[in-house]
């Protein structure tokens, strides 16, 4: 009995081991994916690395969260500085090490608030070495020189910012005020021109569509965006009217103004039925001129931006009480200060 059992056990073990070895070898060399994240398959050759990076990410993320709550500013700066120093420096840190970017944001804000300009400059310079095509670092260098009175150096840094992003609003404002203080009215007009031109192309209207398809029997409501001081606003829109010309509602679309926008919810209130409430928008269809940032947040990258969804099953129009949109946006309107610059230049321009 025992012998038989032992014999069976040996056979089973041999079979299991052979099968396992074959499967493992196959998996190792052929790289059968275990799971797919986005386009990347997790296979034998990268599973340990994936685990390592995941662990590392969590640790660094947690460490950053811990630093964020430190109240003592000096201690916080030191910790942030050490934190940044510990993270590997690579050009692709924005993708690979987003917490480093966040740490930069935190530390640069602290330096700015405390007017530690040389430190801000040193920090920005470090990042330029690893991400030389990012306008914000040059801007911060310009800002630091500006506050220290190094106007020529600030001007040069601002030009470098504009070389990457000719419509960088912060830079245009700083450089604008600098050049106006120097009486160089023609120069600042030339520098502002790309911004003024591109601003003129930006729509400041938010439109909502709903109907049977994108084209037929479409209801469309647009409203002009009035920017508040923070250029941010929440829009809630109730059409409050029955759709004409169509029998069923199948299509809901939002055309945002240029800038970033975050959709909180789209509700379709239906008579005698539960509210159809959309709160996730990352899976909505979007035009090529919209880029998904994160969760329900998007940004426009072209002049024909919209997101839309097609309802799984149509809703009879007579049953619809209202369609309700709730979203916040940061529109790229023409900056007030820059408008003032232009007015000032106009008073000098022959």
């Amino acid at each position: 009995m025992f012998k038989k059992l032992r014999k069976n056990l040996v056979t089973i073990l041999i079979i299991v081991n052979i099968i396992f070895t074959i499967l493992f070898t196959l998996w190792f060399f052929v790289e059968v994916p275990v799971k797919k994240f986005h386009d990347t398959e997790i296979t034998s050759h990268n599973i340990f690395e994936a685990a390592y990076y995941a662990t590392r990410d969590r640790r660094w993320n947690a460490a950053l969260e811990k630093i964020k709550v430190i109240e003592d500013a000096e201690e916080k700066k030191t910790e942030l500085h050490n934190y940044i120093e510990d993270i590997p420096v690579t050009q692709w840190f924005n993708l690979l090490y987003p917490y480093q970017n966040k740490a930069f944001g935190e530390l640069s804000t602290l330096y700015k608030d405390d007017e530690q300009w040389p430190e801000l400059r040193e920090l920005s310079q470090k990042y330029i070495e690893i991400d030389p095509r990012n306008a914000k670092y040059y801007y911060l260098i310009g800002l630091s020189y500006f506050h220290e009175g190094g106007l020529e150096k600030a001007e040069t840094a601002y030009y470098e910012t504009l070389e990457i992003d000719a419509t960088h609003v912060g830079t245009l404002k700083q450089l604008g005020s600098l050049l106006i203080s120097k009486g160089q009215y023609y120069k600042i007009r030339r520098i502002l021109e790309p911004y003024v031109v591109s601003s003129s192309y930006l729509t400041n209207k938010m439109c909502f569509f709903w109907g049977e398809t994108g084209f037929t029997g479409t209801q469309k409501k647009c409203q002009t965006i009035q920017l508040d001081d923070n250029q941010r606003k929440t829009v809630t829109h109730w059409p409050g009217e029955i759709l004409n010309n169509i029998n069923q509602l199948k299509y809901v679309r939002i055309d945002p103004p240029q800038g970033t926008f975050k959709v909180e919810s789209v509700k379709i209130n239906i008579r005698n039925a539960p509210v159809l409430n959309y709160t996730t928008f990352s899976n909505w269809n979007r035009s090529a001129d919209v880029k998904h940032l994160e969760a329900n947040e998007f940004t426009t990258v072209g002049n024909d931006p919209y997101i839309y969804t097609i309802l799984k099953s149509g809703i009879a129009v007579e049953e619809i009480e209202s369609v309700e949109f709730d979203l916040t946006y940061t529109a790229v309107g023409t900056d007030k200060e820059i408008i003032q610059f232009i007015q000032m230049i106009d008073t000098k321009n022959l």
Binding site: Q91, N94, D131, R133, N134, A135, L162, E163, I164, D165, A166, T167, H168, P194, V197, S198, Y201, L202, D289, K291, L293, T299, V301, G302, N303, V332
Partner: peptide
């Protein structure tokens, strides 16, 4: 678009400086 980050600045056909 002169940036690694595609969201930097305005799109190609908005901005002559791109």
């Amino acid at each position: 678009r002169l940036s690694f980050s595609l969201t930097t600045g305005q799109p190609l056909f908005f901005d002559t400086k791109k």
